[in-house]
Design a protein around this nucleic acid. Sequence first.
DNA 1: GACCTGCTGCGGGATG
Length: 838
Amino acid sequence: MATPEALEGWFAARGFAPAAFQREAWTAQAEGRSGLVNAPTGRGKTLAVAGGPLRGALADAPTAPQLLWITPLKALAEDTRRALQAVAEGCGAMQAIPASAGARAGKPAPLRVGLRSGDAGSAERARARRGADAWLVSTPESLSGLLSHGDTAEALSRLRWLVVDEWHELLGSKRGVLLQLAIARLRALNPGLRVWGVSATVGNPDEALAALCPDPRDPRRPHPDAVRIVDPRPKPIELATLLPATGERFPFAGHLGLKQLPRVLQAILAAPSSLLFTNTRAQAELWHQALAAVWPEDPSTLALHHGSLDANLRRAAEDGLRAGRLRCVVATSSLDLGVDFPDVAQVLQVGSPKGVARLVQRAGRSGHRPGEPSRVVAVPSHALEIVEYAALRRALADGRLEPRLPPRLCLDVLAQHVVSCAVAGPTDADALLAEVRGTHAFAGLADSAWTAVLAFVERGGEALQHYPEYRRVERDASGRLVVTDRRQQLRHRLSIGTITGDGHLTVQLLKGGRLGSVEESFLGRLNPGEVFQFAGRALELVQLRDMTAYVRIAKTKAGNVPRWAGGTLPLSATLGEAVQAELAGQGGEGGEGPERAASAPLRALQSRLSALPAPGRLLAEVIATRDGPRLFVYPFAGRHVHEGLAALVALRLGRLAPNTFTLAANDYGFVLAPHTKRGFAALGLDAAMLRRALSPEGLQDDLAASLNLSELARRQFREVARIAGLLPPSLPGRAPRSLRSLQASSSLLFDVLRQHDPGHLLLAQAEAEVFEAQLDATRLRATLDAAARAGLVLATPPTLTPLAFPLWAEQQRGTLSTEDWKARVERAAALLEDAHGD
DNA sequence: GACCTGCTGCGGGATG
């Protein structure tokens, strides 16, 4: 029989002593506490949170299931299962777990680590439901699925430990909200459950802890017994920026960064292996194509990885990297976390990482071994991004990181959870409400909101109550919530989860496998015979059928790259402020890198032509361009906020003198172009007038008036309705529903509700999300408040300034000629040859 | 008048 010392022995046998933070976590776990562990990747966080359960398994021989481990990714779940099994076997815990209730008595079961995710087979699923395995690894969605089975409650009530891995990834999304609700359920089943999280460093650690271990008396604060354990050893990040040579022209705008191709290739060839991160899938395809054109080695050593590629292609890239067969992988956020790559020597980031935390996350993909620094090569694609990297270097040195804000009061997610509970078995509504209010996400939930959620799951709400398909939840004789109809149960289990997104066509080779998926709208515009670039190759469209695009490898190399309509990554507030400070020369003394010197000419030019923005000084410029006057404003608050602000200011200026404006926004600011030629002169625009246009007063009403809110809400409604279970789920194994069919049913529902039930909770939810998620209203208000306090500088430079130029270019988009992509690559290749020739 | 964006993630279950 193994002993608790076996854990220490396991370490000792491998020649290293447990780190202080690991011991600290084990001690807290032994005291029966819950908590959160913060440490950089590759620092033994897994062992820190597995140590307590493992010791328990060695000492007390508890009944299975003992531990449930949640990860945000299926691939990570599989990796974790293997790692945990190895640890358990290595510690001699194999004999420790007595047979579970269902198994034959007398024979102890080995400490088996099970897997319950969408990829698990039916035998594995059955084991999970019985609680047959001592440890179980799963995803948030699969946990909700498990909880929707009444017969798992008994097994789950024996659970002693819950671990949430990569909590920072879930914390800020509805997936995290769903998990909070599931955890509340597990706590109700077993009040003694210990909950541990593992997270990268975030800017709001207390909130991260509270969302996982809420104080029952005030769920928006952490439980008084919960601990946060931090690995204090720094994980150094070496930042090297590829800067233009002295005197070299560097673009003031543009995001592709291909001008840097020769330098990037040089950097890649100088290291044994690299990950090249881009911000978008299209950009990844283009960079892969550009690199392939000048790749001096075996073509099979260069690979591509992004979220729209088929799982098999992605796995091939991951395996190749792990086996050391690949020299470079071009990737998007799809490789931000998950699979371990011990051998990546360096990470390259093309363009702006948009936030400090994202750079840290990506940097963490290199230098995985303890004591090794992470190496990042920054590839700015235009001049202002050099300033961004100067700011990033300072922020890294100061340890400033973005918060991940946990969403609150998502009634669509709550509705889904209530149905899950009722599907599992008769549920007392009052008890459930108390449980729900005990989470960070639903602390202080109003009685009226709860009533509306119940009305919705029981009848669909007022307008839909005559349609039987929206009557999902019934009441049993004692008034408890139940779902007895088996079709409804199945349908509900199919629609568990908060991830939405459809309208994608599968791309399939006529001879061969699936390559991935592409936006319906992109392929819909192509005719058979036309060529496009995808999955790193030129493909010819043969035909479209059943939501599948059949393709063959094209003979020609030309072709457009699909654009995916993805989310947008606005510049974070933390980075925006750092950039402002950097521009103003307030970046801080000491430790500055070469970026500051390299960006000095830009700052000098901006200062000479206009003025420099600064924290507490909002800069606006009116510039007479060839096409007429333009108003530029630079709050550095990210693209979303600027889009809202541009519409707001346009509305308010238009009230003073009727006019219409063309708007454009980027991460640094926005521009207004009046349609009438006299424009701002006719307005007599001055600082005082602009200040009024930027006033926080009447914000909500003016925003609503300035934007087509109902159209925005209509789109958001589809996501909300899907999560709340109002739209039929697509069935596994069948072709996904087309965007048009989904839009039709969601749009119809939207109109019905608007007309007959305008107070419906899902409409309110959709509108709230337009404000919060799309417009970033909280940040927008904060920006206006700051602007109201800040000094406003209205400059009238004689010509476009470095800050104005990218916005001007953005506005010109589409009106100017397109440069041939191939010519561009050839030019870059020629540059590279020149560089070699030197 | 230097130039062309837009991420990631998951998911039934009973029966032969």
